[in-house]
Design a protein around this nucleic acid. Structure first.
Lengths: 392, 392
DNA sequence: CTCACTTCCTTCGACCACAAAACTAAGTCA
DNA sequence: TGACTTAGTTTTGTGGTCGAAGGAAGTGAG
């Protein structure tokens, strides 16, 4: 199944935006929507009716009067798990069932062995999605169209051609190169499947959740690997090949320059990723087994680990400085498991302020993304919802 | 005068695009426009009529039959110099009068002393624009609305807030900080004045001229200073503060790191700009007076100059590699006076291929922009034309 | 030369999205 | 109780677009 790019009308008054305003609580009534969207009350009424008839919206009693007739409250059918989402990581996958507002209804984290290959991994995860969606009492309750699965969104920790759903030369996923995720999944579920890069999904999730009013944003995902997602003019920027945001192999100054899995040395990923921190600590004789251990050491104030985290932060900041000068976003936010690592964040910030054009950092927000663990599946759900609403 | 951002409908079938198709020769008849735009013939007819009645388009006799009725050819009123443009540089300004197709009717290069301040410099250039526009015989010929000046576009070699037309903390333009170019010009001419950064204008000009079918593009302007312009989804990306593309103060590895006018050391501008090359050569005892001299030395194969050019190319490539990984454009093109410098271009290319994700460079075009000298005023004219057509 | 066919372009009727205005509904407050 | 306020619907109108039909102007085969 081929999914075309995010439609243009996603902005300014389209059905998607109405839905989102209700979902986020920005609007509660038709009158609110009319004020927010600038559309006339009649048009809003009409659209709302259409959305209700498709089960994408519902009425929820009367609200508080503001001096006149009480508004008839609107709500996105909640509790009904209708979107499946998979956020695949290097060692774990976050799997979730979400409702039409993009809220997580059920979710769990599963261990994953990427090296088992796409069929095995994705097969198991799709099963888990089905279980989660079915397991939601609200969904099985009605049995109506409202509670039915509408689509599945999948995030992949590597380069993905979003338009076709195919994976292209992933450096950390042996055996997955060229695999057509969308086609594989289309054979297992009879709803649209949308595939994208994990950092893109985190970016979309974070943007929709926290920064939907900002036009230009950059989100860094720093976990086992390191990547980023870009929002330009309110839309996900995927670039020519769909590889936009892939800064993992940008070179940074590091002495000595550690070798990278890509064959080069001094890549950002080889200096600042979770995997790199683990490797570096081990080489210094510190017995850590995984990223969790590294983070614990840093939190405990371990000297070696902290120094490495600082170096990682500087490396990220160095690359990000170029990105900020070039792209001039309103916000740079960092997510992933390393986002909670204070020394890293602090030196990233310092480097950014030191190396960027004052004009570019003048009003720039540098943040940690909130609610990290579910942003990937949230973004995936948003992609699916956008697609579903567009298809009506 | 405040000019709002480039309207969204610039793409896909808007009047602007019809006009552009005719201007570029992609379409010659209404039937062509219908095929290209996907609009129905009736709609095209209607729009074309509107454009003709505004003098933005005209009929130009009958074309060749393709087996049936001959098309009634369309053309943008040519020869009528109706848009003024100023591309201000560090030492010179390119001033032009262009027609509605964006073609240069008259243009000349004037020496400029930035340090005389904005009133003096802009006043003189505006006078020159008036002379050039009036001096066009076709314009004075008719005296009709068709030949009247419709607007002026101005490019500034420093950060500009496009929306207000105000200059913000330019590093190379003492005395211009905070100057409101648009307001100043509005007092001198009674047509819309649009102000933007010079690199943005070059980017727009180059994109419209050579790459209009590409969605994502990056254009480097390497002259006395160094900057870039970004096209995202077919539109100029200006970023949050309008400073997008300003890569001049990104740090690059250089030993020794030369000091920059901004107070830091090792900035791209301090290594790879024309001004930097002049300074560096002088410090090595080579008696060059300006950039022209440097370019001559490089063309002559001077060892020191060539080495510096290579270093500059590597520096540009280094920054550009991050940009390409991050933004994943379809094309990177270099313009400005240093673009013709082979050693620079070659080492930039090499660095780019070495440091970028293979996926990102796989289909990436790396080019020299064509017709360099007039791209700035061309871009300025396009901005004006877009604004004029939108305002109808 | 005639007639079928092609291409180009316009006219006309229909539709759709949206808006403005009028109206109903349901509340507040003096 | 009546004036006023807010919410939402219905009605009607308008502008943009399309499709079908048709007129205009050509080509080419018989």
């Amino acid at each position: 199944m081929t999914i075309d790019d995010a439609p243009r009308d996603a902005l300014r008054g389209g059905p998607r935006e109405l839905l989102r305003w209700v979902a986020t609580g920005a609007a509660v009534s038709r009158a609110d929507l009319s004020r927010l969207s600038g559309l006339s009350p009649s048009t809003v009424s009409q659209r709302v009716e259409a959305l209700i008839s498709q089960g994408l919206l519902e009425e929820a009693g009367a609200g508080q009067s503001r001096g006149g007739r009480r508004p008839r409250q609107l709500a996105v059918p909640t509790g009904g798990a209708v979107v499946g989402a998979i956020d695949l990581g290097a060692h774990h996958a976050r799997v979730g069932a979400l409702d039409l507002s993009g809220r997580v209804v059920q979710a769990r984290t599963l261990p994953v062995r990427i090296e088992d290959g796409p069929e095995v991994v994705l097969g198991a995860l799709l099963n888990e999605v089905a279980t989660l969606v079915d397991g939601d009492p609200a969904a099985s309750r009605g049995g109506s169209a409202t509670g039915a699965l509408r689509g599945v969104g999948i995030g992949i920790p590597g380069p993905v051609q979003h338009s076709t759903g195919r994976i292209v030369s992933p450096s950390r996923m042996p055996g997955w190169n060229g695999f057509d995720v969308a086609a594989f999944c289309a054979g297992r579920v009879d709803v649209p499947v949308i595939v994208d890069n994990d950092a893109n999904l985190m970016a979309l999730g974070a943007h929709r959740t926290a920064h939907s009013e900002l036009d230009h944003a950059v989100y860094i995902k720093a976990g086992t690997g390191i990547g980023s997602g870009v929002i330009s003019s309110g839309r996900l920027h995927r670039g020519a090949q769909g590889s936009a945001g892939d800064i993992s192999h940008c070179r940074v100054v590091a002495d000595p320059a550690p070798p990278c899995t890509c064959g080069n040395a001094g890549c950002l990923e080889a200096v600042a990723s979770g995997a790199a921190l683990v490797t570096a600590l081990r080489e210094q004789g510190v017995p850590v087994s995984d990223l969790t251990g590294v983070i614990r050491l840093i939190d405990d104030g371990d000297r070696q680990a902290t120094a490495l985290a600082r170096q990682a932060g500087r490396a990220v900041g160095e690359i990000l400085a170029v990105v900020v000068n070039f792209f001039n976003p309103q916000v740079v936010a960092i997510g992933g498991r390393l986002a909670d690592c204070e020394p890293l964040l602090a030196s990233m910030r310092a480097t950014l302020y030191e190396r960027c054009l004052p004009l570019a950092t003048q009003t720039l927000l540098i943040e940690r993304v909130a609610a990290g663990q579910d942003l990937g599946i949230t973004g995936a759900a948003h992609l699916v919802i956008d697609h579903v609403v567009a298809a009506t």
